[in-house]
Each structure stands twice: as C-alpha cells, then as structure tokens.
Design a protein around this nucleic acid. Sequence first.
DNA 1: TATTGATATTTTGTCGACAATAAAGGGTGT
DNA 2: ACACCCTTTATTGTCGACAAAATATCAATA
Lengths: 218, 218
Amino acid sequence: MIFSQDKPVTSTDKTFILLRDDIVEGQITAGSKLSETELSTKYAVSRAVIREAINRLEACHIVERKANVGARVVALTPEGLLELYQVRESLEGMAARLAALNMTDEEIADLQLLLDGHFDEVKGGNSYYQEAGDVDFHYRIILGSKNKHLISMLYDGLYHLVRMYRVQLGMAGPRVTTAFDEHKHIVKAIANRDAELAEMLMRRHILYSKNNIQHKLT
Amino acid sequence: MIFSQDKPVTSTDKTFILLRDDIVEGQITAGSKLSETELSTKYAVSRAVIREAINRLEACHIVERKANVGARVVALTPEGLLELYQVRESLEGMAARLAALNMTDEEIADLQLLLDGHFDEVKGGNSYYQEAGDVDFHYRIILGSKNKHLISMLYDGLYHLVRMYRVQLGMAGPRVTTAFDEHKHIVKAIANRDAELAEMLMRRHILYSKNNIQHKLT
DNA sequence: TATTGATATTTTGTCGACAATAAAGGGTGT
DNA sequence: ACACCCTTTATTGTCGACAAAATATCAATA
C-alpha cells in the first residue's frame, strides 16, 4: 500500500495524482514527452516535485524514462493491452482465491449487498454506474485477499493503466449484463469458500473482458 | 523493465543498487530507519539522489515511507513471506504458461542445456551454484514470458525481496535435488508447448518451496 | 547536395540552502 | 509525581542554481 489509499499530504502527492489523472484521462496524450521544466510551470511547483511525481509514474508503468533523455507517456498498443490483461488474470485470479479464504462473513455479505444494489442499475441501463460498479466489485475482492503486495500492485499500479486503455480507446463497454452474471457466480464461490472455483471464475471473467475489448480494438 | 537490466548510468542508479544490496544482504538491518542525511554522507552523494534511491526502494516494497516522518526498511515476518510467495505463485505460474507459448525453440533448447549443466553441480552438492542455478532457471522462464509487466514485477520487484528473506533467515535450502526434478518437468511441459501444465507445475513448485521455507521459519 | 564536425542550446542530473513538519526535551501547574 | 503545553531540535519537503549530458544548429568540405 504505497500510494493511493492514504490521503495526499505532501505537494508531491497532489502533483502526482494530478499528473497521473491528466495522463489517464487523456489530457496529456499517450506517447508524448514529459518536459520537467514545462510541467513545473504548468502545475506551479518546483522541478523536484515534478521529478518525484514522474518517478512514481514510472513505477506504475505509466511513463517510461531514459537516463539523460527524459520521460515519455507509454504508448497504447494492442500488445500492451494483451500483456496487461495477462497480468490481471494472474493477479486477480489469485486475489479471488485468497478472498475466498480470507474475507470475513460480514465482508462477503457486504459484497453481496453491493451486487444487489448494482442489479437495479444494470436494469436501468446506466452505463456510467455500471463501470463504476464493476470497478467497485473488483476492488472489494482485491482488498479481500488481504495480501499487501497484491493490493498494491493492482490498486496502485495496474488499475490506472487499465482505466487509461478504457478511457482513451472509448470502452464504455456493453457486456455489462453478462459481466454481472459472472460477478454473481464469483461471489457465490467466495461465499462457499471455494477458493479453487473463485480463482477459475475470476480468470475466465477477465479473459472474456479482454477478448471483448480486444475485439473492439482491432 | 524499469530498473535493473540497463546498466546503471546515473549516480542515482548506482546508489540505488548499492543501497538495495546493503539492505538485501543484511548490512542494513531489517526494520531500521533510513536517515537521508546519514545515508548521504555514507554514500558520499547529495540528499537528492538518496531520496530518489529510497523512492525506488519503496516502489520495490523494500522500504516503507511515511510522509514527513521518514523511511524504514520493511520487517521480515512470516505473514510477509506467505504473501510474497502467494504473489510469486500467481505471477510465475503465468510466466511459465506464457513461456510455453512464447519462447522460441532455441531459447527452450538453451534452457534445457542450462539444466543439464546444473545437473552435474547438483551431483557435486555445491550449494552455492545450486541456488544461483535456481535463480537462473526462474529468470529464464520469466524472460521467456515476453511480458514486460511480468518481467518487471518479478525481476525488479519481488526477487530482491525473496532474496532478502533467503539471506537473512539463512535459507541455503536443501531441497535442491527434488527442486531440480521439478525444474526438469517444467521444462518438459514448456518444450511440449503445454501451457496449462507448465503453469500448474510452476505453481506447485513454488508452493513446495514456500512450504519448505516456512517450515524452517516456525 | 549530403555529410561531418564543431558550436550553441536545451534538458536532465546533482547539489546546497531554506521552509515546514514532526519528534524530543524542559518547564510549569495541579 | 503526573500531565499538559511550550520551546527547541532534528528530519523531511521544497526550491532555485549549477554541472553534465544530449540534442539541435550551422558551417565547412567532399
């Protein structure tokens, strides 16, 4: 849990989040160069905090840096998306497995409630809440794994990249109703404490999601 | 591929590696505080490069930092080891799966050669080369996955932590001959392009390894 | 005209100093 | 003696300036 869950306190924290969101939401275009002096005037902070923010973005795999040359926002490629979802499948599968073992009964009940709440919105066909709901669902399970590394890697690292692809390639998805069913099955497996099944279902869920996005991309 | 594979060029790179190794090898004790001023005199560089080095160590989960307070080397706990191996199982399992799909025939042949070479040393009972050989083997497969994220997470991140546990808890392991057999089976699965089996065998291999270490730890 | 080499300019890397925050210590009052 | 508050001290966070490296500019030559 390095980055995000604690509220930003220092100036670098805030700048890091601003810069990250500007990149993820496409305000700063993918593949573009990040000039330290330029950014320091834009965000009205010193170059030192910009540097530190860029370093954190590098650790998130959102920018790439070459020594004595500078940093660039990563490019969004089909291969990159594929690799990203391979790692997601692996890590979130393990997260589901561990969640089935480590979540408390109360947490599982809460998760079920969350899903029931989303059910109404799915019927209403509200796409925005559908995506937010999807993210919420995955977060719960990630946190339910109770594994620090897993949480940090997914929460602080991969998810912003995933969102970057979603936003900039215009994936408001449909596939919401089917995804909702998959969510239901995963929760059921977790409630049954069936770690093996929970992992398998989650991996399939992410695999389908990848295929869906990839299909649109080509 | 953020950190290690490119040779260190900048002063920060070198200091980062020095500092990391001092921590991993136990020169700087686990759980201890990292004073920026103190380290800057010790390594004869400015506080700025120490800060940046510490930031990178934080991204590797080797140190933890609190705003306005400072950074501490992580503590080595049984739970931490468990969590680490859970992530390893997940990621290296996926790496083996992808390696079975993406490694070239030549790379697989090389891997087999590597294993044959280790076989002699295993018979000789040289424990140092056994561990180095184990690391080599895992590296090959990780690289064979051809997945940037996977490579970076394992190579730059987790492996130094794994080594930190190994060194500081004195795990020169035996289990070498049995591990060697497991390696052979994994390579066989990869050579057969059986991704499913390769992943499963790798996961078991890491699980056994975890159990072995954990058994010693308690 | 294309290429190579030197020069100039821009950008990153490093440093020391100052500001802000948190921890430590001492004093006072109950 | 104990607790609380204020002062002091030490450590981190932020800044601007300088050094070094890479890139761009331009001139001379083949």
